[in-house]
Write a protein that binds this DNA or RNA. Sequence first.
DNA 1: ACTCCGATTGTT
DNA 2: ACAATCGGAGTA
Length: 168
Amino acid sequence: MGVIVETEAYGGPEDPASHAATVSGRTKRNAVMFGPSGYAYVYRIYGIHWCMNVVTGLDGQAQAVLIRGLDPLDGEDVMRERRGGRDPIATGPGRLSQAIGVTGALQGHRLTSPPLTLEPGWPLSEQAIRISGRIGVRTAADRPYRFYVHGARGVSRHPVNCYRGPPA
DNA sequence: ACTCCGATTGTT
DNA sequence: ACAATCGGAGTA
């Protein structure tokens, strides 16, 4: 169990960095993104890591949020075990998925039931929430779609091009 | 069928 | 700076 402290937004087909922006639109991989919100869109990256998104858009919009950082609240022992004895603090989408046991088996999983659920957190001050460009993307990297909690341990990086306030 | 390469991470 | 590692996406 933990608190999500870092996310990235990915728009629909109009967002060139999104998996939904394929020439064919909906594909076997991104099909879950095109469905209703509240489901897990899981994909494999570089043939090595699993990454998890939460579908956020209305049915057909293909919008999702990549979960990139988590501050554990409890169960750190289990997370450490899943991570092969390494630091349970899960920074980055790959490590995070490993820590909380996300694999392709959770593709399309509804996040309201075990084994993985998503619940509301609590409000944070405006100052605590920082915004930056997305990490790792080649295209549209300058879009202010990355949101993270200032100073949180689970945040992967504090990039230079961060700024305050809502997205332009 | 075949090539290219990625919303990453760990090592050199 | 680069390797690990593989299936999706694009081209044919």
